[in-house]
Structures are given as C-alpha cells and as structure tokens.
Design a protein around this nucleic acid. Structure first.
Lengths: 357, 357
DNA sequence: TCTGGCACTCAACTGGGCAGAGTGCCAGAA
DNA sequence: TTCTGGCACTCTGCCCAGTTGAGTGCCAGA
C-alpha cells in the first residue's frame, strides 16, 4: 500500500511553501511520540513544552495538535485528555522523523561475543532469538535459514532394512533434513553407493530449487529393475526440498508481553494466539523485504490479532544473500529507533556468524 | 516428599473411629473444590447445600468448614467471604476424593485419529502438544523422546572434506542427531566404510547409554595411523549420546494463560518466564515418575514462578518403556479429574503411535 | 449431633462532590 | 499573519459516605 504508506507525502508537498510551520508540527509529533512511548500516558500541550524546548507556548502547541489531529496523526481518548499517536502518526514518525539508533560499541561487542559462542545452527538461532528479546525487551522471532536459498552440501542414503532407506539432506547453512523412504523393491549396497555418488555428483553444491531439474533424468542411467526405487528416492527428495511448510521458527521473550498495556487479558490474548500459529508468524516474516528493514504498524498487519502491535523485521543471510528473516513484535507504542537499531545489528551479526561457519 | 504428599493420612487415621463425620467433611471439601473450580469464586455454605445434596443444613456445613479450615484444607480470603481450597486441600482432593475422568469413546477416537495423521516424529510431538492444549484448555508441554532410553538404529558417517565428517545418529524413536567432526588426519573412503560397519555392527540396536562401554576399545582394531581419527569420531559420538541438554521440548496453549486469574500481569508473568526456560521445564518433567501420573500442586513445585500453578505430568513411551514425559500446566484451580484423564489418554495414544512407527 | 435464628463483618457497589489536567476559543501583542 | 496569555469548559480519577448482600460464628433448642 504505497499510497497509504506515505500519508505524509500529501502534507509536505501541498504546504511546502509554509515550511517553518510544518517543521514545527512535525517536531511536535515527534515529541508526542517520544513522550508517549516513554510514559504510556496521553501527553498534553503543557508537559510537551516543558520537556522539549520547542520555543513556543502551550497554546501554540495546542493549535498544532488540533491540526495534527485533523490530519489523523494523533488522537484524543476523550475531550479533556492529552493526545496519543495513531498508527498513521507512528508511520510518519518512522518514515520521516526517526533515525535508526545504532548500537553502542560495547553493545555490538557483546552481541558478537554472545553469538560467537554458538556451537551449531540450532544454537545460533536460539542465541539470536534470546538476544533479540533481551535487547528490545519485546517478543523476538527468528526463522531458521530457509532451504530455498541454500545449497546442497551432501545427500546421504542409509539402509535401514532391505527396502527401507533413510534420506538425509545436509545444506550449506548446516541444516539437516531427514526422511524415511519405502522402496518398492530391495536396494543393495552397491546400488545405494552408486545412487549416493550420482546424487552428490550432480546436485552437490547446487541451490535447492534447481535440484529437481538437474536430477530429473537420473533414473534412466540405472538398470531398469532399479529404476522404481531410484524414482521413489527422488520423489521423497523433491518433497523434502519443496517442503516450505517445514520452515521452523523460534520465539523468545513472550514474558515481555506482560508489559503491554493495562487492559490486560484482552490485549494479550490474541497476540499469544498469533504467536502460536507458525503459519501466521511465517507469513508475517514472509512479508518482510529481503534486505530492507520492514516496519508494520498496528493495522498494517494483515493478521487481525496483531492489530495493536508493530512488527519490525529484516532479512539476514550468510554472505550477500538473505536466507531467512528475523524480527520483533511489540506494542505499537514501542521505541522504534532503538528497536530498529537492535534488529539491524543482530541481523548483521547473525549473517556474519553464519557466513563464517 | 511422601510425608507432605499425604497430609490426609493423619486425619483419616486418627479419626477413623468417627467415620461418618469424616466422610461428610470430605464430601464438603470435594464439593468446595468442584464448585470453586467451576465458578472461580469463593464458595459459601448456603450455595453448597443448594448445589450438592449433602443432606444437612448450611449451619452444619459451616461447622465442617470451620474444621476444614483449622486443618488447613481451605481458606477464607476475608472474614465475610466463602472458602477457597488451599494447596493442601487440592492435594487431599487429588489423592483421595477425585477419580481420573476417562475420556469418552468419541474423544478417544478423535485423539487417535488426530495423532495417526502425523508424518514424522516432529509432527507427532507437534500434534500431541496441540491436542493436549486443546483438550485441557491449558498449557501443554511435551518432551521429545529422550535419547537415553532409546536404542541405536543406525550411525552414519558422511565425508564432507578430507578431514571433516558429519556424524548422524538415528534412534529407534525416529530422532536424528547430527554433529560435525574435525579429524586430526585425512579419512579415506575405505576407512570410513570400515568404521561405519564396525560402529553399526557393535552398537546397532543397543540402548544409547550402553554404547560408550561397547565401543571403548574400538580404536585398537584399526591401523595405528587411523586411531586418532577414530578416537575423535568416538568422542563426538559419546558427546552426542551424553548431551542430555539437547532434550527438546514443545509447548502449546500459552494463550490459555489469559484465562488464569483476574490479577493479571503479575500472575501470568512468572509463568511465561518459566515456560521460556527449557531448563525449568525439563526439570519439571524430570521430577515426573516414569509410569505413574504426577500431580504437583502450587507450592509443591520447586520453581518459584510456578507456585500458583499445578503441573500434571506422566511418562509416555513406545512399548512398555517410558522414553519421555508430557504434561499440562494450569492454575491450581483446575479440573483435576478431567485434566488427568486427558493427560493419561494422550500419553497412552502417543505411546501407541510411536510403537507402531 | 444437627438446626434455625440472630447479630456481626466486610467487600463491592453507588452517587455526589471535588480537584486537576487538558482543551478550545478569543482578543490582543509582535 | 502568527503567536501568546487568559478564561471558561469538559472530562476523568479519586475520595468519601452510605447501602447492600453474601457469608460467617455462635448459641440455644430439638
């Protein structure tokens, strides 16, 4: 929704002749967002001029607030209360008023050090998600490196019974997938060795989605009697490759949901429900751009249960390619610059760690 | 704590001469527990006689209540309120007053049918945990079949680079563990084949904890030049076997926590925190008896954060052996008979499914 | 040993009044 | 034209007192 996503465009363009006013209004909005994020309470004109040196009186700020409200950036819970940013207000804030807050050097060192201690892929993901939850004090989500972008490191076939095989697929990201294969006929050691060698010879090092086309004609190279078994193995292998659903996700920091709001069970429940639905989470992350950071605010989230939350997510990868996504889920009233900084930093370092191992 | 576990023992024994009175008091306690579980509100004497035909007047019930309170089975939030069972009261209820409520035939069929749809071990566990959460409307926990009780189905070695191997361990429960091995010297195909054969020949079918002793002397059967590499592989294999920490756990139903109590963030927060700590969960399940169902009520839980929850858990296994545990975490005020019935039924069916596959 | 009656207690609800934060508007200053 | 100070107004939140009602404990009598 590029139209909806930049509601500020209109405002800035049409009034660009009256620049100083707009500047100040934006400053007011920025101040409101910052204060509200800090206090969780509607912020009034007086408090605003006290805390930020805007150089004008409360009355003036009130006028600006009225204008901002008319344009839908802020909102008043009731007549005699302060203002709260709307989703649209946060959107403007994120797009034009906020700068991603970089991590400090000690923080960066700590992140790196913590992630370097990981022993295997599971551990990398586990550490990443915990770290992210801790840094942002919100709910963190990390997707396992996806199969689609990775390459085949090795395919192994293990004979369990004469007709039963186990197929093990190892990717360059360290991920391992295994499947049982029930062959139509017995599979001898020599056939197994031959098949293993051909599979690895042809597909080794290739990107997973390309594998099926590469191996399509493989059965024709075998004795007619063996072909059914070879085909079965291939079918299972292709299934494994295609099984996007198997994309796993790890969560952490759900306890931070308790810091969500005052109107409790109602606000937290749908979020907890969403978090349990892998599908929802996967789709959420799936909407993330590959390299650019994505921020979805409140109702911008397709899933209804997350309408009062914001999602900050970004892709990460070993090397230049993004192989998976990670992100953070928190209340719309969150510290966007800080959260975005943490998400970006963590994504960068996980990428490095993955590239090294 | 067998002493603490049966606080009723004293009561029953000392007053066994006054049998009818105790019977009625126990009936009162039972009625209080049942009502409180249903309504979540302190239950008074009048409501009690109305809902259960106890055959006596409210005044009499009041006397019994006073006695029950003196013995610590129930408790009064404030002077003019009804009674609430204490942990001790629930304990007595579970030990002597409640009968595990068996699942109905349609429920059993549904359980079985749902679990039978699983395609692999991950799926079995995932389905089990969701099912359990749904049936009990509480938080469900399922431990993956542990390595310690299972047996070796196959050990596979895959050469990735001349000195780098991947070790894959497949157990009879369908669990697969893999580790990288950095060998001190190059490992040729023939050595690899030899090693693979010997490993499987010696350890195949054995229970995991026995494997180290069986393979201890393996290196001596190889050429002196190869021994360091063989030893390295063995070390990694033994590590894999010993790595209890890797025991994985799956959770579901956290959204049910929102039905916990009224005093929200405070009561739910420590529980969410506990649920994120695999260690806590593992220890929790670890305290479960192998075959008998364990119920830990409120303060009986070692972990402080779970002091206002009860945990119902039991072992499950393929065949006669318990290979892992599963359970449910809910408020102390839970429907014990129903929960226990569901837990028992699910455990039984998972066991069957695992045994079949 | 049980029961009905009675006085007592205490949380929860109700409605009125008050304080305070915050607003909108307007007339006058820069 | 834009900003500012002042003023009247509108709410919510809080405190207070009074009332209600559920529930108890105790006691005398069946």
């Amino acid at each position: 929704m590029p139209d909806d996503g930049k509601p500020d465009g209109r405002l800035i363009d049409t009034r660009s002749s009256v620049r100083p006013l707009d500047e100040r209004r934006l400053a007011v909005l920025r101040a409101i967002v910052q204060d509200y994020v800090g206090t969780e309470e509607p912020v009034g004109s007086k408090a605003l001029v006290e805390r930020h040196n805007l150089g004008v009186s409360p009355a003036t700020v009130r006028n600006d607030m009225a204008a901002l409200e008319e344009d839908g950036f802020i909102h008043q819970p009731h007549t005699s209360a302060g203002r709260i940013p709307t989703d649209k207000g946060y959107r403007l804030f994120v797009d034009r008023l906020a700068e991603v807050k970089p991590m400090t050097a000690p923080e960066r060192r700590a992140i790196r050090h913590f992630l370097e201690g990981a022993v295997d892929l599971d551990d990398v993901v586990a550490r990443t998600v915990r770290l992210l939850a801790q840094l942002t004090r919100q709910v963190a989500v990390v997707q396992y490196p996806s199969l689609t972008r990775s390459t085949v490191r090795h395919i192994e076939l293990v004979s369990l019974t004469p007709t039963k095989l186990m197929l093990v697929l190892i990717t360059n990201t360290g991920r391992v997938e295994q499947r049982m294969v029930d062959c139509p006929g017995p599979v001898g050691e020599s056939l197994l060795a031959e098949l293993r060698a051909r599979l690895n010879g042809t597909a080794g090092g290739c990107r997973l989605p390309e594998v099926p086309t590469l191996l399509e004609d493989l059965p024709t190279g075998f004795e007619p009697a063996d072909r059914p078994s070879v085909s079965t193995v291939l079918t299972v292998l292709f299934e494994t490759l295609a099984e996007q659903n198997e994309e796993r996700i790890m969560l952490a920091g759900t306890a931070n949901l308790t810091r969500f709001g005052h109107d409790f069970p109602l606000s937290i429940r749908p979020v907890l429900e969403a978090l349990e639905e892998q599908v929802v989470l996967l789709r959420l992350l799936g909407e993330t751009g590959d390299s650019a950071m994505t921020v979805r605010i409140g109702h911008e989230n397709a899933y209804e249960g997350l309408n009062s939350t914001s999602v900050v997510s970004v892709g990460y990868g070993s090397g230049d390619q993004s192989v998976a996504k990670l992100g953070v889920i928190g209340p719309t009233r969150m510290d966007y610059p800080g959260t975005m900084g943490a998400v970006r930093a963590v994504a960068r370092y996980v990428g490095q760690i993955l590239a090294e191992s």
